[in-house]
Computed example of a mutant assay.
Amino acid sequence: MRQVAWWGSSGRDCLVYVLVPVGMVFAFILFWRLSYLPYRDWSLRPEEGR
Rank of each mutant, 00 (worst) to 15 (best):
I29G: 04
V18F: 09
Y17G: 00
W42N: 13
G11R: 06
P46W: 09
P21V: 00
W42R: 12
Y39T: 10
E48S: 07
W32L: 13
G49I: 10
V18Q: 04
L15Q: 04
I29M: 15
R40K: 14
I29Q: 05
A5M: 12
F31M: 10
L30D: 05
W32T: 09
W7A: 05
D13P: 00
A5F: 13
M24C: 12
R33Q: 11
V4E: 07
Q3L: 15
A27D: 00
M1Y: 08
R45S: 10
Y36M: 14
L30E: 03
S9Q: 10
W6P: 05
M24K: 10
P46K: 06
L15M: 07
W6A: 14
S10H: 02
G23N: 08
P21H: 01
S43N: 08
Y39R: 13
L15K: 02
V18K: 04
E47T: 03
S35P: 00
Y17K: 14
F31D: 03
S35H: 14
Q3P: 01
M1P: 14
P21I: 00
V16G: 00
L34W: 01
R2E: 13
P46Q: 06
S35W: 10
R33V: 05
G23L: 06
A5V: 04
S10E: 07
L37H: 12
P46G: 02
S43V: 14
R33A: 08
S35K: 12
W42Q: 13
L37A: 15
F28S: 11
W32A: 15
Y17S: 05
R12N: 00
V16E: 00
S43F: 04
G49Q: 13
L44E: 06
S43M: 11
Y17L: 08
Y17Q: 10
Q3K: 15
C14R: 11
G11Y: 07
Y36G: 11
G11T: 06
P38A: 10
M24S: 13
A27W: 07
L19E: 06
A5L: 14
R45V: 04
Y17H: 12
P46F: 03
R2D: 10
R40T: 07
L30K: 09
G11K: 06
F26P: 01
S9R: 12
W32C: 05
D13W: 03
R40F: 06
A5D: 08
V18N: 01
L37S: 08
P21E: 04
D13R: 05
P46S: 09
Y36T: 15
F28D: 03
G11E: 08
R12P: 03
L44N: 07
V22K: 00
R45L: 07
F26D: 09
V16L: 06
S9I: 03
R50L: 07
